[in-house]
Amino acid sequence: MGLLDISNVTKSYGAVEVLHSVDISVDEGEFLVLVGPSGCGKSTLLSMIAGLEGITSGEISIKGRTMNGVHPSKRNIAMVFQSYALYPNMTVGQNITFGLEMHGTPKPEREDAMNRVAEMLQIDNLLDRKPGQLSGGQRQRVAMGRALVRDPDVFLFDEPLSNLDAKLRVDMRTEIKKLHQSLGTTIVYVTHDQIEAMTLSTRIAVMNKGYVQQLGTPKEIYDTPSNVFVATFMGSPAMNVFPSRIVVKDGAPHAAVTGHDGVEQLLRFPQPNLAAWDGREILLGIRPETITDPEGADRNADHIASLRNHIGVTEPAGSDTFVTMTLGGRDAIARMRADVTVRAGEVFDFAVNMDKAVAFDPKTEERIQP
């Protein structure tokens, strides 16, 4: 049993079920990110944890206490909203301590908590200002301060960085990570941004169409996606997924891949059980960074396959060069070193790290387990 337990939870609006049998246990001190496209149910689930939405069936408990039907004010949770939700007529200090005041906390304790949190968030020089005098990043810090000052069991963040510009999002991401590491708080965080999910979390729940598609660490989600949706949603650029066929040669399974010219090339697949798929179609998943030039290939990899293919487009991106080619009739991207010499229109000998390749069943789109 974790600090927060979500057990077989569903949510329906009339006859329409929008969340389907969600089971997640969050341990104390964990940073769980709920990530997925718009409409996948992640914000609905967060609202159910907060008590802002009712539960159709199942159970949510915090510290072993069932929360079904418990008023939000009785749950000892703190929520940071996308819109900040600050009171415009109050100062920063008053916004931070308002919740404590409503709970009858004595003034000296309120001020001590406010000063501690304001110093931590580096907004102690803003305590006398009104929200209208603050930047977006400063307002977000105040909203976080209002949550932190309460010392709740669970912090809930609902897309808190989506209103900030790109650079400020990166800065605030770092601040939230630092806070979690220093305080050891339990956080459930909703975002549609998979970079936020990967960088902030200790575990990720990838959601789509009301289902949890996969629950795991960032490394598990990235390296061993459970299905094609997770593979292509997590990662930037996304994992290349294209049709292939298993061919057993010299007793070992190989992935038959067609390039721009339609000629099959065999890539040794280090997953022995795939020999049972001899002659059958699969979907082959390969991350862009595992397709590179021979000099840039991972020296620790056991299975580097050679792939000769035509370069369609090159995109220099400072620290990397992205190369687009055709594999299995689909566009595929290679992520290469910035100083590699590649030109559009030429034929190039790529190195593919097959240790990182993933096979999916084309009918179910689920990963074929080793």
Rank of each mutant, 00 (worst) to 15 (best):
P370W: 01
E220D: 15
V247N: 00
M120K: 15
V92A: 11
A351G: 00
G251C: 03
L161R: 11
T199A: 11
V154K: 01
V263E: 13
E281P: 03
A78Q: 13
L200Q: 12
P362G: 05
L52V: 06
I333M: 06
V170A: 15
S47D: 02
L3I: 14
H180W: 06
F322G: 01
G184W: 03
K130P: 14
D339R: 12
R299S: 14
S236V: 12
L100K: 09
N125D: 15
A275I: 09
Y13R: 07
S61A: 15
L200I: 02
Y13K: 01
I311T: 10
V117K: 00
H192V: 00
Q271G: 01
L148T: 11
E315P: 04
T217Y: 08
N115Q: 13
Y189D: 00
E59L: 04
D158T: 09
K177H: 00
R287E: 14
A334R: 11
Q194I: 06
M198D: 00
K219Q: 14
T326F: 01
D349P: 10
L148G: 05
A317E: 11
V117S: 10
A78P: 06
N68E: 08
F157H: 08
G329C: 13
D112S: 13
K177S: 13
L164W: 13
L127V: 04
T174N: 06
H180F: 03
E53F: 06
R141Q: 08
I77Q: 03
V228D: 04
A143F: 09
E289H: 11
R141T: 04
L161Q: 11
A85N: 02
R146G: 10
R308N: 12
L156A: 13
G345W: 07
V70A: 11
L100S: 08
N95H: 14
L32N: 13
A205C: 02
G296F: 07
A301S: 14
A351W: 06
P370K: 09
T292W: 05
L327P: 01
D165I: 06
M48L: 10
A113M: 10
F31E: 06
L179E: 09
L200V: 11
E346Q: 15
D23C: 07
P72V: 12
S47N: 15
